[in-house]
Design a protein around this nucleic acid. Structure first.
Lengths: 343, 343
DNA sequence: TTGAAAGCGCTAACAG
DNA sequence: CTGTTAGCGCTTTCAA
């Protein structure tokens, strides 16, 4: 067990907890065959030692702290704005705090047991940052069971005692919807993101709930899913524009999808925003190359990564009480792709 | 000792080398008290076992391979285009090859002995990638001495048997100079980069040698150093424009510096490229925000990172002969910041 | 500069 | 479920 760059001896933990080394060893390995009372005691002792070990020696450490960064793989991840921004924020903070970062790209859906693999074992890692969690809650549960300090980014756990920092996607989507309604639009459609991600779901939910609060009817045909990908987004936009009553405004859940939507519209001879307003999400710098400057939502992704590292560091040092819960605010960026509806 | 994601037992190495475990242990720890003959034998055996261990089991591995990525810290590193691009390329390849990456930001000049620190010890690492080497050749030497597979990016070792992949900065600078001469310029100045980096030096050398080959006089006053930083670059540009015979074209060794140079010129009421042509280096996307589209040099930074990972992986598997040596070509991007000289 | 022996920290196995 | 024992792999020590 590694704490704040220092190795904790099993025998020492055992002594303090009044159990044998074996019991501690089993607890650390997450084996089920340990009496609950013993397990609790061991965990409490580890928690106490964590604080004792780390706080009093700020610069005296020989070994650096090491954080694991778990990134769920998805298509084009390293061309994606999200991943590179998170990584930027994480490294920014890590380099300031002199923390090494072990990056692991985990395969979606697969039962990769990276926790027991050498490089990411608690032996070598002081804490773990999940850059996102897609469906594989299993690993998170294991990490929690072993009391390894961790923070989840981009997924907000409202009730569970899990440290999490996320973008307030729902509020952001409401802002977008309010903005479009404020421009006089009533026939508003959406190209939703990947609904297996929390960001995708929340953005859709926020949009729906805002439409409802304005008593605007949202036909199921106005809801398409682009999975955050280019080609499905195009298909979605095409289907929207083919409707007998096409929308006058479209909320795309990512800038990449919004750019594709603009392209689809223009190829059909429509003007943006004259014939149809389009708004994106991300504030991806690539929008600078858009034929019409894209209105969008800026989100503090790099900040989220930075805060993740800083908070995790504080948690490990016992300077921050758990659970940490943060919802970060977004900002609507108004450019030229949305216009007031003329009657 | 870790090889290709597999732990090699000291005792096994010892048996094959015909020495005791102690000797091997000492060799691995880099202790000086080992007979040279024994040390050589041990190293040879390790080299052999490396190939035996890795190649025959492509997918059978339980543990992932782990590469260390050493990035030398400098100002604003994570806002720098270079660092983020290298990292992008490294992760792109690493995720494809299912390799974990341990990122370490090393402090410049300091005697950080990260090799003996737990997280980057040969115990936990299969190979090392240097994202650049600034002055601290010591660490590289240690890595080489311990026969840990490694590749150096962005520094080209012409003669030493060190694996290296770099941008051909010298040729790129010659291209730039040829380009400016081709536009009719003869009074060409430069804002050089940080001359403690190889990139900075080579770009200056290339520029100088090309000027010479055209029999163009290069006054020392025409050579300023901007250290790749904003404020020194401004000062450099200011001093150039104050000369009694100011240059008609300026080669800035980075886009950030070129943008500052443009700003300085415009604030003095000069037109770019009418009064002075300016060319940068990097093809930083941030040039999109430049008041006049910046002519510059694109360099395959992400590709360099990607190749680094791929080659290192092949070296470890014995599929690639050492030393690997590569010089990557750049491309001059012509936009609007350089004009033909009118007489 | 070497290696036997002792020590250390961990875990698999097995008996209770 | 527990804890003893035995064993593993490595390093420190020390005498030669």
């Amino acid at each position: 067990m590694r704490i704040g760059g220092v190795k904790l001896q099993i025998s020492q933990i055992a002594k303090k907890a009044g159990v044998t080394s074996m019991v501690v060893s089993r607890v650390l390995q997450g084996m089920p065959t340990v009496k609950k009372a013993d397990r609790d005691r061991v965990e409490k002792v580890i928690g106490r030692m964590r604080m004792d070990t780390v706080s009093p020696f700020p610069a005296k450490r020989k070994t650096q702290k090491v954080f694991g960064l778990i990134v769920t793989r998805f298509e084009d991840i390293f061309h994606s704005f999200y991943a590179t921004e998170v990584i930027k924020g994480v490294f920014l903070a890590a380099s300031r705090l002199k923390i090494d970062v072990m990056v692991h790209i985990s395969e979606r859906q697969k039962h990769e047991d990276w926790l027991t693999s050498a490089s990411l074992s608690p032996e070598n890692i002081d804490g773990i940052l999940f850059a996102d969690i897609n469906s594989d809650l299993m690993q998170l549960k294991k990490v929690l069971a072993r009391k390894i300090p961790c923070i989840v980014l981009n997924n907000y756990f409202e009730k569970e005692p899990i440290n999490s920092i996320a973008i307030d996607n729902e509020k952001a989507a409401v802002d977008v919807c309010e903005f479009l309604v404020g421009l006089g639009h009533t026939r508003i459609a959406t190209i939703a993101g990947d609904l297996s991600t929390e960001a995708g779901r929340k953005r859709l939910e926020g949009f729906k709930s805002c439409m409802k609060s304005h008593n605007l009817r949202l036909s199921p045909r106005y809801i398409t899913t682009g999975h955050f990908l280019r080609s499905p987004a195009r298909k979605g936009m095409e289907s929207l524009l083919k409707l007998s009553e096409p929308p006058t405004a479209v909320f795309a859940a990512s800038d990449v999808m919004a750019m594709e939507a603009i392209d689809v519209a223009r190829r059909l001879g429509l003007h943006v925003p004259g014939d149809v307003s389009i708004i994106g999400f991300d504030d991806n710098p690539l929008c600078a190359y858009s034929p019409v400057p894209l209105s969008t939502v800026w989100q503090p992704i790099a900040e989220m990564g930075r805060m993740g590292v800083e908070f995790l560091n504080q948690i490990i040092s016992g300077k921050k009480k758990q659970p940490v819960k943060m919802l970060l605010d977004t900002k609507l960026i108004e450019r030229k792709s949305c216009g007031r509806l003329e009657h």
